[in-house]
Design a protein around this nucleic acid. Structure first.
Lengths: 264, 264
DNA sequence: CCAATAGTGTCTGTGAGACAGTATGCT
DNA sequence: AGCATACTGTCTCACAGACACTATTGG
């Protein structure tokens, strides 16, 4: 076993500290000027993509576990993170799951893990709870785990095929994001501190998957009274320069408590 | 062990067939003319109330488990039943939990169960997933399980103290019911097949916990076009008799797909 | 007749959506 | 000037909320 495999050694040693049969998968949303993106891990050697996830320590709450897991992948500490659904169907354990288990065991064995207990633990039935997070992707430093080669942001409309039911988990998270739109701090969480109304509109359009009318969007948003107008953003283009805005955090939070409550 | 304790024998024998550490608790809502009610179990001998719940078989999905558990308590087969949240905090395992475990073990021991494995299984950390159901309580036949004396409908504003975090689970379910009000078949599920507009209004008022304006409520509801007006209901009182209505199921379902989408 | 509740009509304010008109930055 | 984009104003329609008015039932 190589020195670089210390994380694997830790994982094997720690298995006894985790709840069996329960896992957490995180759908981390970010927004990059035009597109809604999700944080994914790409496996080493094997062709496989998955959501960042992990297990729950016996001494730890599920929420704490989710924060810990996400901190490991993004190095962010104060993350907007909410549970949205628990996936407990038996359909999770079809051929795709068996395939995934083989890959997992192969990776572990390549790293020198031959412990039957560990390999069996991994292969048992898991119920996984989905968490979704909203982050400013400019502030993240994606870190792969020891199963994966890379950890990267992938546009929501160009997702590869993911392991087991992870595509389904992303779909569910996105539905949740849409339904809860009026109660979530999407703007503050997903945008940089200064942004234009066009940026904000593109964010909403990316989430809702439909075009919005520019002038009405601007009027309705500004009417909420949660923005601070800053200097103009000179782009060098031959047109009027848009204003930059930032959020008035206090008013934003006040508003979120009762729900923004308007249509788009 | 008495013959009447067969369910206990089954339970002990079946423990190996259940997923360890995971349970399901159901918040079953019913509406009885004036009040929103929840189905609760009252324990034998011990002073304790709890939600109907159970465990997940290894070969069974969580949704199937929830339906099975609820069928056992209500004898209803086609139930509107949705998962709403998974409770995985460590705060669940405070003094109240320890107290509950003692009571559970006492009941089991009184029934002749001395098997250490069973008693330990019960006492381990559980993550529980909450399901909520909407039923017409006139059609149910509440059945206590072998821990409980009675299974009965309790008004939502007169809940007793429940075991562990079950009060919290009810609160969360109620929040969920309110938020999702426009997307749920509350009327069809909770009311008898024939009802007056006043019945429907009282149901909404019970859920939203606020009075609604009579004439506007009626106008908005009828405008949805999902009701069939039937004969008048002669009450014998000295006032105009209200019409009875039933739901036009097809139109109701069409409408629910896009959400009712109005304010109350 | 009256009392009580059911059902309908009307008015006002708000806001969404459509779109016209004005302002600005650069070539 | 001309073009492109940003911002503002105006119009219409729909609907929520308040409340007045009519209808019905039985004392």
């Amino acid at each position: 076993m190589l020195k670089t495999d210390q994380p694997v050694i830790d994982f094997v040693n720690e298995i006894k500290d985790y709840l069996p049969g329960n896992s957490i998968d995180c759908v981390v949303f970010g927004f990059d000027a035009q597109q809604l993106k999700v944080l994914l891990l790409e496996w080493k050697d094997e062709e496989a993509w998955c959501l960042p996830g992990g297990f729950i320590k016996i001494s730890e709450s599920m929420d704490d576990a989710a924060h810990r897991i996400l901190h490991q992948r993004t190095s962010l500490n104060s993350i907007f993170l909410n549970q949205f659904f628990t996936f407990g169907s038996t359909a999770r354990y079809g051929p795709k799951f068996k395939d995934h288990i083989k890959k997992t065991q192969k990776v572990l064995q390549n790293k020198g893990v031959s412990d039957k207990k560990t390999l069996g633990w991994i292969a048992s039935r898991f119920i996984t709870t989905g968490y979704f997070a909203l982050v400013d992707l400019r502030k993240t430093h994606p870190q792969p785990d020891f199963f994966s080669e890379t950890c990267q942001w992938i546009a929501i409309d160009k997702l590869p095929e993911l392991i087991i039911d992870h595509n389904h988990i992303v779909t569910k998270a996105l539905e949740h994001l849409r339904v809860q739109l009026n109660y979530l701090p999407i703007g503050i969480s997903l945008l940089p501190s200064k942004f234009t109304m066009q940026d904000l509109q593109r964010l909403y359009e990316a989430i809702l998957q439909k075009p919005l009318e520019r002038s009405n969007f601007q009027r309705k948003m500004l009417k909420l009274g949660i923005f601070i107008r800053l200097e103009k953003q000179m782009t060098g283009a031959a047109n009027k320069a848009p204003y930059l805005y930032s959020f008035d955090t206090e008013k934003y939070n006040q508003l979120l408590e009762k729900g923004i409550g308007f249509t788009y």
